[in-house]
Design a protein around this nucleic acid. Structure first.
Lengths: 187, 187
DNA sequence: GAAATATGTCAATACTGCTGACATAATGGC
DNA sequence: GCCATTATGTCAGCAGTATTGACATATTTC
């Protein structure tokens, strides 16, 4: 399973062979490769600073983020999204629970399930971290104009593995639908 | 220096996080935050698969990449770009040298310096990895059209910490100037 | 009742980052 | 020439996050 993309996505030249863009053997996109590296590092850097003070790391951020976005998600769902093992998840999840940022509830229909929810403290932290990242993104998008946002979004979607793209977009759409607005007014 | 972004970028959400209600305060860019996460994961996923087979990790990739892009760079330069400690660098650099992907040469003017160069095998590997990432990027850019590339580039540049942006752009420009084209025709 | 599922946990290992302390060699100022 | 500084390397230990493998428990499903 791990090597699918390698055998499927052969080398650079296959795309050129398919006539898809790419001039002659194509020089690598050095600039975009490096910009992506630096951009992502700083993008996760802001949350990192906050998390360190709480004794958390990036793994805790990811768990908290997705639980906050998808309240009531199963542990299995989380493993599927993060693509890590349950042992890896177990450690950080336990810390988040012990520290009062996440709680588990038994599933209604299936009592084996442990549905995950953020506590008010968990939501608060998740929103703070998302706020930092949003501030960075919004500043840039403001400089690009409204058309820029759509281009950036399409770029990021396209960068995702084709066989995962639909799943990711569905998850985002479902989360948006489920939490159209925070604060009070429960449906 | 580390906390500037925190104190400078005022708590968009800190107030809401404190439970203080605040209406607009702008909803986080959930979709872009998550898309960036998945996009970056798959972006580095292709090289990862190749590297694992060689007993290398992501750290080796970064070192190899920047040495290939900036032949003759000093160890200190590399530490500055990667923002890691020399102890962390030492481990991976030693492996790359032992395995014949990187070599060191004494500086001409300053014999304390160890200037870094990729071997032919190192260049070959670096180009293979860059090719995988370029293939992914080029496919998407092909779908976005020529204006898309510039928008994406400006987005990524804008996402970099303001105080690092110039340095990064200078490094990219200098590397581009130094190695205008690979393949045969030496300058 | 047995098989499958959802989850948790123990143990060992790998990779990559960190701090602190020292060592070596070469440069540069005096 | 002496000495402080610089560039680099290295040893030892720790932390965070990932892995594999094995096993345990509760619950559902057939």
């Amino acid at each position: 399973m791990a090597d699918i993309s390698l055998t499927t996505r052969p080398d650079t030249h296959v795309q050129a062979a398919r006539g898809e863009q790419i001039a002659p053997a194509s020089e690598p996109c050095w600039d975009l490769i490096e910009l992506l590296f630096f951009a992502y590092r700083d993008f996760v850097g802001d949350p990192d600073e906050v998390l360190v003070k709480l004794g958390f790391g990036r793994a805790h951020h990811r768990v908290l983020h997705f639980v906050n976005r998808n309240p009531g998600m199963k542990v299995a769902d989380l493993l599927d999204v993060l693509k890590i093992t349950k042992q890896s998840l177990g450690r950080v999840l336990k810390q988040l629970i012990d520290d009062g940022y996440v709680v588990q509830r038994e599933g209604d229909h299936d009592r084996r399930q442990r549905l995950l929810y953020v506590t008010p403290a968990g939501e608060s932290l998740a929103m703070q971290l998302a706020g930092l990242q949003t501030a960075r993104i919004s500043r840039v998008l403001g400089e690009l104009g409204p058309a820029g946002r759509e281009t950036v979004r399409r770029f990021l979607v396209g960068m995702i593995d084709a066989d995962d793209r639909e799943r990711v977009l569905r998850m985002i759409a479902r989360a948006d639908r489920a939490r159209p607005r925070r604060r009070d007014g429960a449906p």
